[in-house]
Design a protein around this nucleic acid. Structure first.
Length: 559
RNA sequence: AGGGCUGUAGCCAAGUGGUAAGGCAUCUGGUUUUGAUCCAGUGUACCGCAGGUUCGAAUCCUGCCAGCCCUGCCA
């Protein structure tokens, strides 16, 4: 696939899953690698899924194998086609190509049914009429064995008939389930005769009304993997116990009880500071209108990150930087931000934008604004030039002017002090005009006409550089500055995570951008010099609205 | 009568008996028309703790401690 440049072919990541694969290949347990990314279409993908996507698809790329996209759609009551489309879009946007057509667990409903019949015939599954509470009581506890269901010893013949009736809709929802007959005393709770099928009179987005019984995850997932020839089935840590059931099912089915059948391996899920990562919580934020939607730029969803200005390359790089392990960890935002900055610094055209404008009048400049050719990228000449203007009236940012410089280290504009205007001339502030409230309305200044593209001939040092926009060419723009969504590192630890939401996570500013941005594309990254990386919002239409992806690294304001 | 996992610098993470990679962050210089980038430096990590085996232990053994997961007809 296309995103691999020579820099990352030099050093492949090292992790325990790659070690397992290397061993499996060396021992000829498998002669190829086939992974899968198996989301349930019950919500939008988030950056934790991106980690899994990069792992699964990345492994397939590096080992010249394949990776399937499979929708794990065994519970129609929670799923919607809207999510299927969004998931496909997000995976493709991240730069990955799934093997063949997208797969659905529901493609295999007939086969699942057949395998359930096989287990029944072997006396390994039975139809149980205990209700939910009874089942719970019979299950026992973490420290006490469970009790056998009274339906556990029904004959295979009778179970076959019962299961057939389940399928035909002869039983009500909740009236019975098909259960595996394993061990009610197992220390693995999931092995205490787990449910394999339940009755659900529900319309399914793929199979319509063809079924009224639906398989459970633990029964469907391992068989789906086996049917698709998956070699390494990767999931997160909370499924470690379930692996015993995964193995039990495949071990007891004639078609799959082979050494090269799929095996499950678990890695730790991504936890990011100052955000939440569960679909349920994300759903809640959307439903409670605490964010504007799944793609709110503050959301850790892939669609939110995309709208915020994150690039596919930066997310892949992030996944590589954090690695894969089994440690229950909390990753800092700084790694994510470093990943975007590294990518954007290379690819983002430079531009100038004034987010909080104050007018500057250059008193010794007369006539029409002057056209200036400025580099699109200071370290990459191949990116070409852009036209900017300098004239009698300009805007600079309020934060770049102080009437009196606080100390010798101050590098911005002050009265009687010189500063370089980025890509243009050196100016000196002369005096200010204020309104009744004492707020500065205009700064009067002079410019040195001999300093365009040159240092002052007399050798005087002008250290500071600030950005500006020429007033007659300035395009009004709205800037949305984002901050972390929560005020605490781990919101999930709070009694009510919504109570610690950061009320200042969005700040809106009105200012100007340079002319060159008139036709800026949504989601395309720009660096507004000295301000950060921004992209035009993908839903604002003709209005100039920019989302700040991330600010520039700042090693100075902390001092 | 519980079981399954995990503990390596502030954070992430290699390491699989031979003397602790790398990234992020931090700090210090240098370059710079972005206080950015870039470049060069910058860390006493009781390798969770305590014992043991060994010429040699983060790696093997024993015992503790801490954190996470498991009692859905969710995934």
């Amino acid at each position: 696939m296309s995103h691999h440049d020579n820099s990352d072919t030099l050093s492949r990541p090292v992790n325990f899953i790659r070690n397992i694969i290397d061993d499996d290949l060396a021992s000829h347990k498998h002669d190829h690698v086939h992974t899968r990314f198996p989301p349930e279409p019950n919500g939008y993908l988030h950056i934790g899924h991106a980690k899994s996507i990069c792992l699964n698809f990345g492994l397939a790329q590096d080992y010249q194998g394949e990776c399937n996209l499979r929708f794990d759609d065994t519970n129609p009551s929670k799923e919607e086609v809207e999510y299927i489309e969004a998931i496909k879009k997000d995976v493709a946007w991240l730069g990955f190509e799934w093997s063949g057509e997208p797969k659905f667990s529901s493609n295999y409903f007939d086969q699942f049914y057949g395998y359930a019949v096989e287990l029944i015939e072997k006396g390994l599954a039975y139809v149980c009429f205990l209700n939910a509470e009874e089942t719970r009581a019979y299950r026992g506890s973490l420290t006490e064995a469970g009790k056998d269901s009274p339906y556990r010893d029904t004959s295979p013949e009778e179970n076959l008939a019962l299961f057939s009736k389940m399928k035909n809709g002869d039983f009500k929802e909740g009236e019975c389930v098909l259960r595996a007959k394993i061990d009610m005393a197992s220390s693995f709770m999931c092995l205490r005769d787990p449910a394999l099928y339940r009755v659900r009179f529900e319309h399914h987005h793929q199979t319509g009304d063809a079924w009224c019984i639906y398989p459970m995850y633990d029964f469907a997932h391992c068989i789906s993997d086996a049917i698709e020839g998956i070699t390494h089935s990767l999931c997160t840590l909370e499924f470690q116990d379930n692996r015993r059931l995964y193995d039990w099912v495949l071990d007891h089915l004639e078609d799959f009880n082979r050494p090269d059948r799929p095996h499950q391996y678990e890695f730790s899920r991504l936890n990011l500071e100052y955000t939440v990562m569960s679909k349920r919580k994300l759903h809640q934020l959307v439903d409670d209108n605490l964010v504007s939607g799944w793609d709110d730029p503050r959301m850790p969803t892939i669609s939110g990150l995309r709208r915020r200005g994150y690039t596919p390359a930066s997310l892949r790089d992030f996944a590589e930087r954090i690695g894969i392990s089994k440690v229950d960890s909390m990753t800092g935002m700084d790694i994510l931000e470093a990943s975007v900055r590294d990518d954007l610094n290379k690819v983002a055209p430079r531009s100038m934008a004034v987010l909080d404008p104050v007018k500057v009048v250059i008193e010794n400049f007369e006539g029409e604004p002057l056209s200036i050719q400025a580099p699109v990228h200071p370290q990459n000449e191949a990116m070409g030039k852009r036209e900017i203007f300098f004239g009698r009236e300009l805007y600079i940012d309020r934060a770049d002017f102080l009437e009196v410089a606080p100390n010798g280290k101050y590098q911005r504009l002050a009265l009687d002090k010189e500063v370089r205007l980025r890509n243009a001339f050196i100016i000196k502030a002369l005096r200010v005009e204020k309104d009744e409230a004492g707020k500065i309305t205009t700064i009067y200044a002079s410019y040195d006409p001999e300093t365009l593209g040159k240092k002052p001939a007399d050798g005087r040092k002008v250290k500071g550089v600030i950005h500006f926009v020429e007033a007659s060419h300035a395009l009004p723009a709205v800037f949305r500055l984002y901050d972390r969504l929560f005020t605490v590192e781990n919101p999930v630890k709070e009694p009510d995570f919504e109570a610690v939401i950061n009320t200042e996570s969005l700040v809106v500013k009105q200012g100007f951008v340079e002319v060159g941005l008139a036709n800026s594309e949504p989601e395309k990254a720009y660096q507004f010099e000295r301000e950060g990386y921004f992209c035009r919002d993908n839903q604002s239409g003709d209005v100039q609205v920019y989302n700040r992806t991330v600010a520039l690294r700042d090693t100075w304001s902390k001092k």
